[in-house]
Design a protein around this nucleic acid. Structure first.
Lengths: 358, 358
DNA sequence: ACCCCATGCTAATACGTATTATCTCTTGAC
DNA sequence: GTCAAGAGATAATACGTATTAGCATGGGGT
């Protein structure tokens, strides 16, 4: 038993060249089929034969170091991609990404190694940036690190975010859902059903998506000359009390968790949903996301909400990124896309009650 | 508008060195804290200051170019990883793979580009093997290509299969589920419930997993001195008729699809499941797999089956692969693991009927 | 005064690849 | 016979990093 690791002899171009009796450069030329440089058919034959014999595979590091692309798109997620639970947030995104990558002829590099800080991943860990292995990168995840984003923009590394992101360091390419428009549309739906007191219940934490939802809500309020009631309190029962006090007949709720909690509170207070209180969920949001709202055993509720086109977003992001890599765009420009979200009619919204609740 | 792609601005050690007034080597020394080489505290200070100012990050490629091993594990799947449907076959496997990779400090490279032939992916495309990009590779998928597998073994590329595989070219490392034992256990369960005519309904196509299930079934039959009845016909109603003709009281069925079809046929023939016919499913198999059996709108049935430890299999495969890469094993040896599958008691198995069905 | 050695740094090199400049033939035209 | 052209190959180089060999300096021991 030889204790030496039978290291897979990484075949280099130099070895292939030796076997074929040519120079390393010749091998590279044959491999890359460079225009303008002619290779004798006989030599090409010999080199190709040697390539087959040795089972040569290109070393991406060497290649990339030289500044060539290696047909790899990085995918960086701020949380684990495959959760242990059944709920699956990233799945549809990745589905779209995978599908489109395959169509475009790129492999996907999932960055998992950089380690985490407090459960969240970091792009830059101990000053090492692994992103560079890929030609470009797609970033996903709710918990974005501002400084990291800035640094990324600064480095001019080609990347596309899924979900709208802003950076003080410059414009960011992204593909997001048009939450503002969808929220406004949901408001309009409620309005047409007779609701005149519509509240917004959102995250306290400020992120782009939360801001978008609120801006859509505020826009709709302004349009109908109604005073907005935007609640962000983390305490469900306090929120619920506030809704009752203000005689709210419909609530636009940012996450399913919050909606579930409100639903439960309403039930136990003797209110029926939707007859007494209509509830609209602002997007089929991440079911796995941590929330301070207590999530009880959920009966399957057929929420009225809007569908976030996750799969399309993933695919679109890939197309944009590949476009950037091809140099289709002027360097400075960035592509920013908001895809429409389709309204989903569920059973948690109906006409406003005739007599306001006491 | 400059049409040249703006080259990525990467801070290099050389630039840091220039700023600090030292050599590139000095920067590297400071960064790596090499033992034996001493750096003057004052110089170290200056370099560290320059590092902070520039926001330097290590270029992983330059580094790995020296050491080889790029801390990347390849994942090759013979079908798309993220299906568009809700059913998710690969999810749990990948979950385990991801988790363990992260723990081991490896990134994952999903191979999607090699193109497909008739919907199935191919490892070797145009003779070039992209797998070599990774340090080692994990292979998954029902539709394995014999020749490809042989070639892989031949190349001595480090890889681990998920699911038992055999190759004529040599031993293969794998992590599988112990279908034989689990099938035998399910048989024993049925036996203890009084069933004396237990049939096997499996794939016609011969694969390792199918073979394992059958071998477990045959072993159990031998133990109880019963003549096996192993059906592989693709026509559900023919199979069902055969079961009736042979007065079978319990069927071990390889896939959920087949089970669903049998269930439906039994119902429409006036038989109750499980009172008249017990059905055990041999593993919670891939719900997305194509089957010739017609899959009707399925009521959610609480099958009696065994749980395939997918997540554990993924994680284990990674550990084995990383071990191979580290050289823990003697080169020639291969690791072959079968993980136990836990029995799941559902509502499709009960005591054998007193009077055999007519 | 001389040598030795430790200290603190730099120059040089290797890693694998792609590309450019350069070199060597062969051949055809004059 | 000479020259130009051009085909066909090679040498050289750059990419960013880690490491080793080596260079300068100075202090202490003999």
């Amino acid at each position: 038993m030889q204790h030496v690791t039978q290291r897979r002899k990484q075949v280099t171009q130099a070895e292939v060249a030796r076997l074929a009796g040519v120079s390393q450069a010749m091998v590279s030329l044959v491999l890359n089929d460079s225009d303008g440089v002619r290779v004798a058919p006989e030599t090409r034959k010999r080199v190709e034969e040697a390539l087959r014999q040795t089972g040569y595979t290109v070393d991406i590091m060497g290649r990339r170091l030289r500044g060539k692309s290696n047909q790899i798109l990085g995918v960086f997620t701020y949380e684990a991609v495959f959760p242990s639970g059944t709920a699956d947030f990233y799945g549809p995104f990745l589905g779209g990404i995978e599908e489109e990558s395959e169509a475009q002829g790129f492999d996907l590099l999932l960055f998992t190694s950089p380690g985490r800080r407090q459960g969240r991943r970091k792009v830059y860990e101990e000053g090492s940036n692994r992103l560079g292995i890929a030609d470009g990168c797609i970033l996903l995840g709710r918990h974005t690190d501002r400084d990291e984003l800035d640094q990324l923009v600064d480095e001019r590394f080609p990347f596309v975010f899924i979900g709208r992101r802003e950076s003080s360091a410059g414009p960011v390419s992204y593909v997001g859902g048009d939450y503002a428009a969808a929220t406004a549309a949901l408001y309009e739906r409620l309005w047409s059903l007779g609701h005149r007191r519509v509240a917004l219940v959102g995250y306290r934490e400020e992120s782009e998506s939360t801001a978008d939802r609120r801006s859509g809500y505020l826009r709709a309020c302004r349009r109908h000359r109604k005073t907005p009631l935007a609640l962000t309190d983390d305490d469900p029962s306090a929120v619920f009390e506030r809704l009752r006090a203000d005689q709210v007949t419909a609530a636009l709720v940012e996450t399913t968790e919050m909606a579930v909690a409100l639903h439960a509170l309403a039930m136990s207070a003797g209110l029926r949903v939707p007859e007494d209180l209509s509830i609209g969920v602002l997007g089929d949001t991440d079911p796995t996301q941590t929330s301070s709202w207590p999530l009880r055993s959920t009966p399957e509720i057929d929420w009225t909400t809007f569908r976030i086109p996750r799969r399309e977003m993933g695919a679109r992001a890939v197309r944009i990124l590949v476009g950037m890599l091809r140099g289709d765009m002027e360097p400075g420009r960035r592509t920013q896309v908001l895809l429409p979200c389709e309204l989903v009619d569920g059973s948690t919204v109906t006409e406003a009650p005739r007599t306001p609740r006491r």
